[in-house]
């Protein structure tokens, strides 16, 4: 029985190379600010219990992503866990737990890139948590905390957080000029509208079991954490903005005009860098083809040189030890 195939990369994790440096850096900064704030909040809310609780829960979310069920034709649904983490731990701890999960996935399993990690943390930990919190708390309040309200809220939070996060992924790809907005955003949204159903059903199952065996755990997450209102409003805003921008961005045939403006802005930002040495300083500007050939030769020599050196060193070591 092999479970290695369960660690197939998910379409939500953006690898390196797909986001422009500007988008990556901006989302890194946003994520770092949110994480720093969450660290302070969690220290106040949970105290010294926080490290074991969040560490083990992060491991549980990671392991929970291995649990899957057959959908059809070899495909399977499985959990990502933003909604369940938010419901069980409250928003601030959830952000940290999901940051840890996404971080280990990138650092150890190359599921998502390292430069793109800021964006992935933003999409899955920040957006995932904020939207889950907003949806779940709203449904709970509307249904006055009845059991079916917990389950319905869990389903909608799971579905909503996945779909909104996927719209954000599509938008980031479009802003980076990696994929046209009118294809990336609807495609990401449509795929995740389906994936989100699986996520929602698993979340219902998990909440049903937890409310039957340890109802106190659900109560703990419901307790109003400090700054909860800010997360609620943040979730509302994120959901609204992405729900409004995404159709706008994808209805325009060439993507949004402000995507182009963004690119214009990039050119301006990079302009001075290229003018350090104007063209005329290099009279016979090297031919691109020649440069590529030279690079190929240097690269080949480099790799073969190292390979030979390593082989030689190994043989010496082997003969010395025998």
């Amino acid at each position: 029985m092999s479970f290695a195939h369960l660690f197939s990369p998910q379409p939500m994790h953006i690898p390196d190379g797909f986001l422009s440096v500007t988008v990556s850096v901006i989302l890194w900064i946003v994520s770092i600010v949110v994480i720093a704030y969450a660290l302070r909040r969690v220290a106040e809310d949970l105290g010294e219990r926080q490290v074991p609780l969040m560490g083990v829960l992060a491991a549980a979310i990671f392991a929970g992503q291995m649990l899957n069920f057959t959908v059809a034709g070899g495909t399977s649904g499985h959990l990502m866990g933003a909604a369940i983490a938010t419901i069980l731990l409250g928003p601030w701890a959830s952000i940290l737990v999901l940051t840890t999960v996404v971080g280990v996935q990138a650092l150890i399993f190359q599921d998502g890139g390292l430069l793109a990690l800021g964006a992935n943390i933003f999409n899955m930990a920040v957006i995932g948590t904020a939207v889950s919190y907003f949806v779940y708390q709203t449904v709970l309040r509307l249904t006055r905390g009845q059991r079916w309200g917990v389950l319905a809220g869990g389903f909608l939070a799971a579905w909503g957080s996945i779909v909104i996060a996927s719209l954000a992924v599509g938008l980031q790809l479009a802003l980076s000029g990696t994929s046209p907005a009118n294809i990336a955003i609807p495609a990401m949204g449509a795929i995740h509208a389906l994936i989100g159903v699986g996520e929602g059903l698993i979340t219902i199952g998990a909440l049903a079991l937890i409310s039957a065996t340890r109802p106190d755990l659900l109560k703990a997450g419901e307790a109003r954490p400090t700054g909860g209102r800010a997360v609620w409003i943040g979730g509302l805003l994120i959901a609204l903005i992405l729900a409004i921008i995404s159709p706008l961005a994808s209805s325009h045939p060439d993507g949004l005009e402000w995507v182009a403006e963004q690119k214009g802005f990039l050119d301006v930002a990079q302009g001075p860098l290229y003018e350090i040495i104007p063209d005329y300083v290099f009279p016979g500007q090297i031919n691109e083809a020649v440069a590529t050939i030279i690079a190929g030769i240097i690269g080949t020599i480099l790799v073969f040189g190292i390979a030979l050196a390593v082989a030689y060193a190994r043989r010496n070591r082997a003969s010395a030890s025998s």
């Binding site: 609780l53 083990v56 491991a59 549980a60 649990l67 698993i202 199952g205 049903a208 340890r214 755990l217």
Partner: peptide
């Protein structure tokens, strides 16, 4: 049915989380 399979998997996830909570208590 699909929904039933998903719910069973959800129950597994739920018990994984309950066990994780209890384990984190013992670790603490």
């Amino acid at each position: 049915s699909l929904a039933w399979r998903a719910r069973v998997t959800g129950g597994m996830a739920g018990s994984l989380f309950v066990r994780a909570f209890e384990r984190s208590d013992r670790i603490y």
